[in-house]
């Protein structure tokens, strides 16, 4: 009896959430699309607006980056884009 009542509640909740499940999924898909665009746009030759803002991260990572390439046995920065020493 309790099992059936629980089943009924689960069914009812699914009925209620059906239209809203679509709405959430649509919103998530929209966000995913934007994220993908930001990740891969440069590969497709589309200028990436997010790239410009990553420059702001430069001061925060530069010290860790320098330690990392020394640990890895490289005296100079291996990436031409990041110059720490």
């Amino acid at each position: 009896m309790i099992k059936q009542a629980k089943q009924l509640i689960r069914w009812y909740e699914e009925v209620l959430s059906m239209p809203h499940r679509t709405e959430i999924a649509r919103e998530l898909r929209g966000e995913d699309d934007l994220f993908f665009l930001l990740l891969y746009s440069e590969l497709l030759g589309v200028p990436n607006p997010a790239y410009y803002f990553t420059l702001e991260l430069y001061p925060y990572i530069i010290e860790d980056f320098h330690d990392w390439h020394l640990r890895m046995g490289m005296d100079k920065s291996p990436l031409s884009g990041i110059r720490c020493c």
Binding site: W11, Y12, E14, V15, M18, P19, R21, T22, A25, R26, R29
Partner: peptide, 14 residues
């Protein structure tokens, strides 16, 4: 999103 196989009981309720 739009195309999701759903139980007939849930669909009937909806």
């Amino acid at each position: 999103v739009d195309f999701v196989p759903t139980s007939k009981y849930v669909l009937w309720g909806h």
